[in-house]
Design a protein around this nucleic acid. Structure first.
Lengths: 211, 211, 211, 211
DNA sequence: CATGAATGAGGATTCATTCAT
DNA sequence: GATGAATGAATCCTCATTCAT
């Protein structure tokens, strides 16, 4: 895309020590918000720096004060999106309960985040990096970190021996992620959909469930 | 700059119904093939007409002899991709067998098509139109026609009363479609994955399963 | 515009001796008609060979059988348009009558031709070549031939000595040509407008008029 | 490829009202000037953005910083041209004098503006929008505003009852505008031509004329 | 912090034209 | 006579980016 200048712009938000002037923080946050919205609707290539600048109410050149490039801006948005889902799921998970209950809460958190009409989540849900460019690798890294959460949750599940836990995880996440393709507000709530989906996978593997 | 001129001259236009444009049978087919490959890798906005023309070995303007616009070209590729999957699933489905067996074969056909490393299928798998533009509507139409196949298959299933068949269909298709995000050749075959996934749902829902 | 290949394609209509096959003549005539219409509406540069071909119902390449280039096609249309007006004015003029009556009839013929909603005339009326390219010179030649008709008509007019007959001619033609810019069907007829305009120039130069 | 960069920096945007962009006062003005010249010679469709950019000494893309589109650029030039003529005529008109004298001065102003070899005026003189596109409507609006000036001037004229003042106006403006088609520098001055033309109408219509 | 002005490459598309069939 | 297929240049315009201010 350009000649490989990635990784310099250390996330400005980590500058917690120094110059935290509100105006600056707000502008950057605003830019991220707008970028999340537009990227999630139009995709990366379909979104122009001008689109974003126009919506923020600033000149395109101004974006370059905060982000070294369009790619960097996108990665920042993606990171934030992944973080939000991680937080939602982590929070839902830490509380006590049976492994199945915790998984159900995690699934609920995951789906609620995905469907929250929050642009960050929508972005993460709709853009699945599969390419082999440097760009894609940056995104995959983020996403992989997240999906590990479910590895642990499913590891705790009481399942018949020789159950393919990996396939269970991937299938369930696939089903959950797929919901964004058909979900329409007004019908069943995200939480109820998530619970039903988990239940589809539950009974057969755990003969004691429902008794 | 281009080697030779015109070789074959079978009216390319009469080919829109079928799905066999292997290689150099004609220019239009070649263009579709190349477009499928590049679109599926780089997405719609990320692919330029120049990219495609370069790979076909013609001038960008030549593409416009066969396709009115980039959008039309994309839709043609998408349609062909959907048709291929429809064929695969229909074929797997028409044969006799119990409803669950037929669904299993359909799922296998679906997943095999998706993972065939056939660019048309990859394209359909990776691009889920969700927008509200005319463009998206053209694609959704195609896809919807396809998903109806599964409505029928699932309608035939012997299920406990009050089972949410719609949610079952959506969840299962979500899980199947999600496989493209993690499938790596060399592990379990698409057919075995599909069968395992269907079995997860079956054991859970079908009182006779496992007997 | 291109590297000076003008003058080869001798007007096919002058081929009155040889191959007058109707189909050919009709196609050529049809092409001229359509070209006249479109050129007169959209101008030379604003009209494409494809526009014309589409309307004729033939492929762009077919036009090149009859006309060596777009420029040649345009010149052919322009020539025909000038000829039509020449004919109209000549016919109106040859009949007997006083010089003023003949001028009035000529003006009427001129204006009627201009407003006839005949595309050839409209073209001539709306495109006034003023440039210095070879192209423009070809057109000017045609037009000049025509305007000479009025030189003679005005030479015959009984006018006070030292009247600037050239200015009279140019002013009157300017006024007549200007009518196309404001004429709307349904109001005064072209003939009545032409008569009124001539009358505006008549009385003052010829003190005996109206008496 | 371009000599130097930016020289002056007077906000070009605030200049839309006035009409004095002589040469290099600012880039926007320069662009208008060049566009006026080329548009007036080659017409709208016959002029490319590249033509203009090349002459200004900038990249085509730079034009888009100042003008949203080719059409907008053209309209801006056209507006400026109309404004210049309006100013010329208004100035010639406001001074006292008999109605005929004022009309004569207005005609002189009009013709002088038209023939000033000023590209803006030439453009207005040579391009008469007659179509029904939005584009044409934008231009007609401008031009109509101008021609209303003459409605008032002619309304003040002492004329025989039942004189068709509208036809008089249209005929006179047609004659004046037609002058650009035959005027050649070196002969009679624009002012003298204008006076003679008005006199033609006056002697004919004004009982007191010549006295 | 932010911008005004610019760039050069590249975007999709249309152009007039050619030529073998 | 007519066309299907192609071309290469040109069309308008948008792109991400830069940089002095």
């Amino acid at each position: 895309m350009n000649e490989g200048k990635i990784g310099v712009q250390v996330s400005a938000r980590n500058n917690t020590g120094g110059n935290r002037n509100k105006g600056q923080e707000n502008r950057r946050g605003e830019m991220l918000d707008v970028a999340a919205r537009i990227f999630s609707h139009q995709g990366y290539a379909g979104t122009s720096i001008r689109d974003i600048a126009r919506e923020v109410g600033v000149q395109p050149s101004s974006l370059y004060y905060f982000f070294k490039s369009k790619e960097d801006l996108f990665v920042a948005v993606y990171e934030k999106g992944v973080n939000e889902i991680v937080n939602a799921v982590t929070k839902a998970t830490t509380k006590a309960g049976t492994p199945w209950a915790r998984l159900e809460r995690a699934a609920t958190g995951h789906l609620e985040a995905l469907l929250a009409r929050d642009d960050y989540n929508t972005l993460v849900a709709s853009i699945v990096p599969r390419g082999s460019t440097d760009f894609d690798r940056r995104l995959v890294q983020n996403r992989d970190d997240y999906e590990k959460l479910f590895v642990d949750l499913i590891a705790d599940l009481p399942l018949p021996p020789r159950t393919d836990r990996r396939l269970l995880r991937l299938t369930m996440l696939g089903a959950l992620n797929g919901v964004v393709n058909w979900y329409r507000p007004g019908g069943a709530s995200p939480a109820s959909i998530a619970r039903k989906i988990v239940k589809m996978f539950r009974l057969q593997l755990d003969p004691d469930a429902g008794s």
